[in-house]
Design a protein around this nucleic acid. Sequence first.
RNA 1: GGGCCUGUGGGUUAGUCUGGUCUAUGCUUGUUCGUUUGGGACGAACAGACUCUGGUUCAAAUCCAGGCAGGCCCA
Length: 497
Amino acid sequence: MANHDKAKRGIPPKEDFNAWYPAIVEIADLVDKRYPIKGMDVWRPYGWKAMRCIDNLTHQEMERTDHEEVRFPLLIPEDLLEKENRLVALLKRAREEGVDPSELRMDEDEAGFKKEVYWVRNAGENDLDVPMFLRPTSETAMYTMFPLWVRTHADLPLKTYQIVNTFRYETKQTRSFIRVREIHFFEAHTAHVDEECATRQIEEDLEIVSRLMEMMKLPFIMSKRPVWDTFPGAWYTIGIDVIMPNGRTLQVASVHHYKDQWARAFDLKYADENGEHQYCHQTTYGMSERLLGAVVGIHGDDNGLIFPPLVAPIQVVIMPVAAHKNPLVNETVETVSQILRESGFRIKIDNRDLRPGQKYWDWEIKGVPLRLEIGPRDVENGNAFAARRTGGKEPIPLDDITNQVRKQLDIVENELSNRSSEHLDGCVIQLMSLDTEIQEGQIYEIAFDGTDADAEVLEKTTGLVILGDSITPFDNEQPCIISGKMTTRRQHLARMY
RNA sequence: GGGCCUGUGGGUUAGUCUGGUCUAUGCUUGUUCGUUUGGGACGAACAGACUCUGGUUCAAAUCCAGGCAGGCCCA
């Protein structure tokens, strides 16, 4: 049978990303999609461990930047939402009054999450007087408490974060890690004395995101979102988009500068040095399990996943080969794994009673970056045989195993890094004029300095979406694609997930 | 938001159009035993399913209605 090989592994070619992705998340044991609620997958041990590895990097970054972890309740009473709604309504009116209406887009959604939340209306046999909803995000819950915590300028900055589950009633098609109804969510919320301090926080957030993206070797773009794509209640929003293999962008993180808008709605004030009350300035920084979706999507290949070493649930799988021929094999495997574990590597010994070939495929599908084979021949020569998931095999000396393994993992990291930037360079191309034919799988870089109305034209004619102003503008002025006016504003057009 | 489609063991699949031959087919997985073990071994035995509720009928996996769940396409 010609496709026997493929059929047995059951992995569609990665070329066909829409088939590959949903297949691989199940075949590699990340999730079980058979749980009977749309958009709520079961995390399997391997998938959860991968997520935990990513979360650990996040925890480290939060620790490094003096954020403190908190944990807020899942349920929020409905009446608190009214403060938020009033704020959103207020901002909307201000925006409508302050901006030329011709420049405003008419298709703005009703702001807020109200339609997309799950409600709890009963408790036991009783109807609740005040219904509660499952948090879609925690602004409302947190900003109800912040005023109780902040008294004076000495309490600021307040830098908190939590990693929790949030809920959104998605009506669109769901996809593991990418669009789900129960979201594994990271959110940092901060409060500061003034706008400038809050702005510095935004800068810190962007630095953290960049570091995390680098650790996970993800190709990304950071853009200040257009007004209509700004989070309700935010002064501005910066979106971090990963460029997936099919050229679609996936927003994996967002950072919001709220100025004092939420503080006014929730009465979050502090006493300054002169004893006068001032409103705080706040920021939010959010990420989700989409990070894992991006890691899966970006690095995997026809043979399965490839985890970047920093987030690999198992970094090195050690495999005794033909152990029955020489008792030294298992002994060596034990010693080596112990040494590596003590050096901080995540290790797995695979001594299952299976044909070696089958074990190899297993770990390739699961994306373990490095495999060490130790057999009678290797023991005799004082080697382990190292096979990198990104390609290439070589014997490495056992007496220097820690350094050697580190070196091998570095090679994998570099390879993934190179692939990632190649992908970025290949996907993003310049669009000089609207007459150019738009191609599937491309992201277009443009110089654009037009109005909202111009933007709408741009989106309609290209069938793409504007990501917003790139964080790094052009060095030299270029003619705007619509008006021809010279500008350094660099923007991107893409298909978004 | 609009439209189309699907639901059979753990996975996948035959059977549905045209009700009876279906106490339901093949492959795979799982368990046990034996032989094997440096890139997917083989033999034997066993285990395991018609999405739910209602209707039509002498008779429903099959037809009808609804629910739940899933997939695809378009805004």
